[in-house]
Nucleic acid binder design. Structure first.
Lengths: 210, 210
DNA sequence: AATTTATTTAATCAAATGATTAAAATTGTG
DNA sequence: CACAATTTTAATCATTTGATTAAATAAATT
C-alpha cells in the first residue's frame, strides 16, 4: 500500500504542498519550476513532496486539473441554466470570471501555456465532453433570438471569442498595461471591475449591430 | 577579439541558428528549451551555438528583442502617422497585426510569458520610451473627436485594451478554439481574416456608444 | 603551395535537478 | 508505556544540461 493513498490524516501537509506548488507553478510555469522551489515555498523537505506526489509531473497534473476545473466547471452551471436569459447569463459569466481573475491573476497564462503544450491531453484529463451537450441550452437561446430578428446573423463563434477575449486578455496583458500606465494593482483591478458592466454592453452592441 | 563579432561572413550559419532558436523558443518557451534542441533543430553542433552566441540567454535575448520589435515598432509607424485618420489607423493596425499573427501564431504566448517574467527588463531592452512621446499624435486625434462629441467620454484605456484583446487573444486561444470547434488551421485563419473588418466595426460601436 | 584565419566538431566538465533510500522523529493505538 | 504506523528528514544517485576546450576541417590570403 503506497503512502500516497493515505489521504485522510495528512490533509494538512499535503494541502500545504499543493498550495505552494500552485503558487510556484502558476508564477514560473512547469519547466522553470524546480522541485526544490516547491519544497522551499512549502517549508517542507524536498523528498517530502516526492513522498506525497511521486513526481513533479504528477503533482503538476493535479494542480493543473484543479485549476482548469476552476476555469471551466464554475461557468458551466451558469451557462447551462435554462432559467436565466442570455442577457443575464452574459452578465453573470463575465462578472464571475472577473472576480476569479482578480483573485487568480496569473491563472490565464498558466492555463494557456499548458493547453498550448498539449490541447488534447488536458481536455481528456477533465470531463469537458459534456460541454457540447450542455451548450445546447445556450445554443437554443441564441437561435431563438436569431429567429426573432433580435440579433444579427453573425457567426456566434465570433461573439464567444469576443466575450472571452475582452474578459481574459486584460489580465494576460496586465504586466504591460500596468508598466505603461503606471497603475497600481488596486487601480488596475478597479478598471477590471468597471468592465463587468462595460463588456456586456459592448457585446450587446455587437449582436444587435448598432 | 571574440569570434562573435565577426558578423559579416558567417551570416548564413548564424542566421540558421537564430531561425532554429526562434522556432524552438517560441514553441517551448525559454525554460523548456534545451541548448541541444536548438542544435538539433539547426542541424549544427551544440558547441557551435555557444561559439556564436556565448550562451543560451544571450541567444534568447537576441531572438526576444527581434520579436518584440516585430510586435511594437511595425505598429508605431502606422499609429504615429498624422496623415491618417483614427478610423483608418484602426483598420490598418488591426489588419497588420492579424497578418503578422497568422504568420507567427505562437508569438503572442511567447511574448506574454517573457513580459510576465520580467516586464521592466524587456521594456528596457527595446526603445519603447519614445512610445509615450509618439503616442501624442493618436492621443491628439482622440481628444479632437471627444471635443467634437463624436465619441463617448469613455476611458480610452478600455478601448485600447479592447482593440488588443479582440485582435490578439483569438490566437492565444487558437488551440482550444480549434480543438472545440474542429476547425482546420485554414478555416481558423479565414475566421481571423473576417475579423479584420469586424473588429474595427465593433470598436466604432463602442466609441460612439450605439 | 604555405600560412594564417575562420568555422566546425567530439569529448569533457561542473553544476543543477528529479528522484530514491535509509534512518530519525512524530503520532496514534492497545 | 510499548509498539506499530505514519510523517519527516539528511544524504546520496543518476541524468540532464549549459558551457568549455582542444583539436580537426575548411576558407581565405599572401
Amino acid at each position: 500500500m503506497k503512502a500516497t493513498t493515505g489521504i485522510e490524516k495528512n490533509a494538512s501537509t499535503e494541502d500545504k504542498i499543493k498550495e505552494a506548488a500552485s503558487r510556484v507553478f502558476t508564477a514560473k510555469g512547469y519547466a522553470a519550476t524546480r522541485t526544490r522551489d516547491i519544497a522551499e515555498e512549502s517549508g517542507f523537505n524536498l523528498a517530502l513532496i516526492n513522498y506525497y506526489f511521486r513526481s513533479k509531473e504528477k503533482l503538476f497534473d493535479i494542480i493543473m486539473v484543479e485549476h482548469l476545473q476552476l476555469f471551466i466547471h464554475s461557468v458551466m452551471g451558469i451557462v447551462n441554466d435554462p432559467a436565466t436569459t442570455l442577457d443575464k447569463k452574459l452578465e453573470l459569466v463575465i462578472s464571475h470570471y472577473i472576480d476569479m481573475l482578480i483573485a487568480n491573476p496569473n491563472l490565464p497564462l498558466f492555463v494557456l501555456n499548458e493547453v498550448n503544450a498539449d490541447p488534447q491531453k488536458l481536455i481528456d484529463k477533465i470531463g469537458v465532453k459534456q460541454m457540447v451537450h450542455e451548450q445546447l441550452v445556450i445554443a437554443k437561446q441564441w437561435k431563438e433570438l436569431v429567429a426573432k430578428k433580435k440579433i444579427t446573423e453573425i457567426n456566434p463563434i465570433h461573439i464567444l471569442i469576443n466575450v472571452v477575449s475582452l474578459t481574459i486578455f486584460p489580465f494576460l496583458g496586465s504586466p504591460i498595461i500596468r508598466n505603461r500606465t503606471g497603475l497600481t494593482i488596486q487601480q488596475f483591478n478597479a478598471l477590471m471591475e468597471e468592465r463587468k458592466k462595460l463588456i456586456p454592453g459592448w457585446i450587446k452592441l455587437m449582436v444587435t449591430g448598432n
